[in-house]
């Protein structure tokens, strides 16, 4: 299904982000969620906490879905800002320095794939250090001094 994707702040996502809990499941539960109009959810036979894959010109990402409290807004989905949303939003600034966080066209479909935790997501999507699965966790993984 074609949708317009908007991103922005949500209370609960900001709560965990500001608290500093971004590695944890509670942040994933808060930020990796597409909020949809109930009618759109019906069209794709989605129930709250089901998963969708969002594809845009810039990438694809798997997130949970939930019912929007700001409806009606058929054809538009809202994704809290964060590492998941970043993958699909547009970097285009039109030479005006602000990338396009809102009004990005995307395609969504139901999926069974996993919604990744932050450490897994960053490692898989960007692959800067190509870490192994056991080096990725919902807690900081690092080598202590003298270990």
């Amino acid at each position: 299904m074609k949708v317009i994707l908007n991103t922005g702040t949500s209370v609960i996502q900001a709560f965990y982000e500001k608290k500093g809990s971004t590695l944890k499941d509670e942040y994933r539960q808060a930020a990796a969620v597409a909020f949809m109009d109930i009618n759109d959810m019906k069209k794709l036979s989605l129930n709250p906490r089901d998963k969708i894959k969002i594809k845009s010109d810039w990438g694809e990402v798997v997130v949970f879905v939930d019912k929007s409290h700001d409806a009606p807004h058929e054809g538009m989905i809202f994704l809290p800002k964060g590492p998941w949303a970043n993958i699909v939003i547009s970097p285009e600034t039109y030479c005006c320095n602000v990338p396009t966080y809102k009004g990005v066209t995307a395609e969504i479909s139901k999926t069974d794939e996993d919604v990744l935790l932050v450490s897994e997501l960053m490692n898989k999507v960007y692959g800067k250090y190509n870490l192994k699965a056991e080096q990725l966790s919902d807690r900081p993984v690092y080598k202590k001094m003298g270990e």
Partner: peptide, 16 residues
């Protein structure tokens, strides 16, 4: 600031 939270993925790719 956390660019991982704030920047588009395409932009972040250069930080690699």
């Amino acid at each position: 600031a956390d660019p991982g939270v704030q920047f588009p993925g395409y932009t972040i790719q250069h930080l690699v």
